[in-house]
């Protein structure tokens, strides 16, 4: 008798987890002291969708985001997949140390959460959360996430405005704290799949050296973001 009741309760729980829509509050904090996020894209989607996979070549949509901060391709891809999305919740850059919050009403089938933004100044570095299963139990869930390299561009660390896919260089350093005149750190990217970013090198010469980045300002250690998801 008791076993039957238990089985019924478990059955009911799993049914509600599958079929209930949820309202989410998603808060993202830029934990770094020297990196700026381009506009974020946040999406709740089905379990078979992913923005990126480590060890696999980036999609052209991810490449456009990671090299130039352009989230329009990812937005189209997610919308086509019937995802619930929020674009650009910070209304522009998310500056170092700052947070932004987005509300997301999710359809019952959109059980997984992803978010991403480019990290400036980097060549193709991005912060990412890929297909995190949204808990069915109401509550607040906090975790940290890391910086990835899209693997699509050599990390030359030259700031030249190059943000279009396939164009070398870093589109900009909105913090106004980078240098010029670097000769380039590298011209190759040995790992062409998405991987954990090895970090920027930078140098201490703002008018020369190999890199246009400042090694006392633009380096980072993981994690680079804190995510707080409240399931209503």
């Amino acid at each position: 008798m008791k076993i039957i009741q238990l089985a019924m309760a478990v059955g009911l729980t799993s049914i509600s987890a599958i079929t209930s829509a949820a309202q989410l509050e998603v808060s993202v904090t830029n934990l770094t002291q020297g990196l700026i996020y381009t506009p974020l894209i946040i999406g709740a989607h089905t379990s078979d969708v992913s923005l990126f996979n480590t060890g696999q070549v980036a999609s052209s949509q991810l490449q456009a985001m990671a090299e130039g901060g352009d989230i329009s391709g990812l937005a189209t891809m997610l919308t086509t997949a019937n995802a619930d999305i929020v674009e650009n919740p910070a209304a522009g850059f998310l500056m170092p140390g700052m947070s932004t919050t987005a509300m997301l009403d999710t359809a019952a089938t959109n059980t997984h959460l992803s978010l991403t933004a480019m990290l400036l100044p980097t060549n193709d570095g991005f912060v990412g959360l890929n297909a995190w299963q949204i808990p069915s139990e109401a509550g607040t869930y906090t975790f940290t996430i890391n910086a990835y390299d899209a693997g699509t561009e050599a990390n030359d660390e030259i700031i030249n405005g190059g943000g279009a896919p396939g164009v070398p260089g870093i589109p900009g350093a909105p913090g106004g704290d980078a240098g010029t005149g670097g000769t380039g750190v590298t011209t190759t990217e040995a790992n062409s799949t998405v991987h954990i970013h090895r970090g920027s090198l930078g140098d201490d010469d703002l008018t020369g050296g190999k890199s246009d980045l400042d090694n006392s300002v633009h380096r980072w250690l993981n994690p680079v973001a804190r995510v707080t998801v409240t399931v209503m």
Binding site: T32, D204, L221
Partner: peptide
């Protein structure tokens, strides 16, 4: 910068500072 955030690590003389 006068705000708390995560540390980027030290550079050191051996790595270009």
């Amino acid at each position: 910068v006068d705000f708390v955030a995560m540390h980027g690590g030290v550079v050191s003389v051996d790595d270009g500072l």
